[in-house]
Nucleic acid binder design. Structure first.
Length: 578
RNA sequence: CGGGGCGUAGCGCAGUGGUUUAGCGUGCUUGGUUCGGGACCAAGAGGUCGAAGGUUCAACUCCUUUCGCCCCGACCA
């Protein structure tokens, strides 16, 4: 491609509405343009990178035995009504009507469609297992789109779905997809980590997220360098026993009210009583936010004073659409507890008491007495009723790894891929059944596997840039080589550059040739901003048969013989494309 | 949806109730000089000041409504 003819416009200024570096760079370098909030145009350069990512994905999916299909974007309401998600999906689903007032949505995901397809075409165990995938546009009406392609409303997703006759088969396919995903992100040149994730609303027994490590990531993750344990904080846990010590037998001492004036926080109380936080119990009051006459549900939550509550875990456990703290002035009336000095003894009947798993390690602990300025000490689990114990603690980077006890590291990540074991959630609702060897009808077991394509591209930029611009990893770079003619008025330079350009094209080298009549500095700045991995500069040494060779990420400039250019370039490209 | 901010030339921004012709930088066009890290000179083109309504002798400026965009939160793969 000749730069002079390319549809590329770069800018010196950061766009006003971009916040993170990758968004700024993609805008400045002319890769993407915003059409509306969360809706972007892929310019030619972005399209080239996207297509490379898609092709890496395709090759790995195909290698893993998956088959590509293309499902529609416009999906009829009826299917979604069958699974109940027409209502559940809520405002995030973009709904439309046709001229006959028939309802459709713009597909936010495709479990319903693919399951519908399979229920019609698969009848026998002999047709299973099968993995189908597509690379296609999704629309999710996000409450708050942000950071360019990171959280767009319209975006390209590779979504795959597996169908099996047994959980053993599902495990095999899940592992295949896991491995394919590792290959995909590795081949894209990304530094990524796989974390245990909460399967959340989609359900299922197991779920992993593929995270590109970046400080701007929207997800917090913990990682253990020693054993490799990695998890989203939504899901992560720790070695509670190691922190709280082995559970001791209750001493037998009777619960006793103690005066603790003004000590309503765990901090104050620990100081006032001069006891470690792990001898204290924290109590919190949550609600689903509904009105009293409209299905309101209030719950009491207990956590060891040593830990913070992880609201995401709590919300997922409760399956509340909304989780809110009960306003402190209403706590007493609604739960019977005294805010600041609340305790589980004396809670109104009917209010569920949920305890973090850490409570099992507590004995003779201190908790509020439901009376102003009083706590109760020597409390044990035998002194009140807990409805359920659930893992609700929030992991911190001072906590030990739940698997090996080493200290956990906390980082942030961008979720570029997510894989789930779905089980029979959709097959049962949509009646996607098969006949097994013994002639029995059974629901098909399913898995689903997604990759955000645009997000993957932007993550690559987020992870590979410097003060001058983007540094594309070779495998997904829109062009491998930028060939720069420094002075278009110098006949020798021009001839050398033109010949090199033609030769590179003939050798199928992906090259963009900066033949514009611009000053050298201007071209260098553009080249750095655009960030193609190899720069070949035809300048003053052209007369003596030499040009310059430079890698984007290496400041060193090598002067090489013109006759060697093709070989050197090809060699550099080859060694970085897996 | 709550809180905050912003809509003025392609982009980034200034600006003011009373010079009737709305500015700066950059980008764009033309001519010339330049040519190794975003050159210089000159001449140009480009705006219903987001939209609608109102107040006023007079509105880009004040008021109301509305649309759009960004940030924080809630929420979400």
């Amino acid at each position: 491609m000749r730069f002079s003819q390319a549809f590329i416009r770069t800018s010196k200024d950061d766009p006003a509405d971009a916040e993170i570096i990758s968004h700024k760079l993609l805008m400045r370098a002319g890769f993407i343009r915003k059409l509306a909030s969360g809706i972007y145009i892929m310019m030619p350069l972005a399209n080239l990178a996207i297509k490379k990512i898609e092709n890496i994905i395709r090759s790995e999916m195909n290698k893993a035995g998956a088959q590509e299909v293309i499902m529609p974007c416009i999906l009829p309401a009826a299917l979604w009504q069958e699974t109940g998600r027409w209502e559940i999906y809520g405002d995030e689903m973009l709904r439309i009507k046709d001229r006959a007032e028939r309802e459709y949505c713009f597909g936010p995901t495709h479990e319903e469609v693919i399951t519908d397809l399979v229920r019609h075409d698969v009848k026998s165990y002999k047709q299973l297992p099968v993995i189908l995938y597509q690379v296609q546009t999704k629309f999710r009406d996000e409450i708050r789109p942000r950071f360019g392609l990171m959280r767009a409303r319209e975006f390209t997703m590779k979504d795959a779905y597996s169908f099996e006759t047994s959980y053993e088969q599902l495990d095999i396919n899940y592992k295949k997809m896991y491995a394919a995903y590792c290959n995909i992100f590795k081949r894209c040149g990304l530094k990524y980590t796989v974390v245990e994730a909460d399967s959340g609303a989609i359900g299922g027994s197991s779920s992993n997220e593929f995270m590109v490590v970046a400080p701007s990531g929207e997800d917090a993750i913990v990682h253990c360098d020693k054993c490799g344990y990695s998890a989203n904080v939504e899901k992560a846990t720790t070695d509670i026993a190691k922190i709280l010590g082995p559970s001791e037998k209750p001493s037998g001492a009777k619960p006793e009210k103690i005066h603790t004036p003004g000590a309503s926080s765990i901090e104050d109380l620990a100081k006032f009583l001069n006891v470690p936080k792990k001898k204290l119990c924290k109590i919190l009051f949550y609600t689903n936010g509904k009105a009293a006459n409209d299905g309101r549900e209030d719950v009491v939550v207990l956590v060891s004073g040593e830990f913070e509550l992880n609201e995401i875990k709590l919300k997922n456990y409760l399956d509340f659409v909304s989780l809110e703290l009960i306003p402190s002035e209403e706590v007493q009336a609604r739960t019977g507890a005294y805010p600041g000095f609340g305790g589980p003894i004396g809670i109104k009947p009917g209010i569920k008491i949920i305890a973090d798993a850490s409570l099992k390690y507590l004995s003779d602990f201190v908790i509020g007495a439901n009376e102003k300025d009083y706590h109760t000490k020597n409390v044990n689990l035998t002194d009140f009723k807990v409805d359920v114990f659930v893992d609700l603690m929030m992991v911190d980077d001072k906590h030990p790894c739940p698997k090996c006890g080493e200290k956990l590291e906390k980082t942030r990540g961008i979720e570029v891929g997510h894989i789930f074991k779905l089980g029979t959630k959709y097959s049962e609702k949509l009646h996607a059944y098969f006949i097994d060897e013994s002639g029995k009808e059974k629901p098909i077991i399913m898995g689903c596997y997604g990759i955000g394509v645009g997000r993957t591209m932007q993550s690559a930029v987020e992870q590979n840039n410097d003060k001058d611009g983007i540094c594309w990893p070779m495998p997904i770079a829109p062009y491998h080589v930028e060939l720069i003619l420094l002075n278009v008025n110098d006949a020798t330079q021009k001839q050398v550059a033109e010949e090199l350009y033609e030769k590179m094209k003939a050798e199928n080298i992906e090259v963009i040739y900066d033949d514009r009549n611009e000053k050298p500095g201007f071209k260098f700045k553009d080249a750095d901003l655009l960030g193609f991995p190899i720069r070949v500069t035809v300048g003053r040494d052209a007369a003596s048969g030499k040009v310059e060779f430079k890698r984007r990420t290496n400041p060193e400039v090598k002067v090489i013989e013109i006759k060697d250019v093709i070989n050197i370039v090809k060699c550099e490209i080859q060694k970085e494309i897996i």
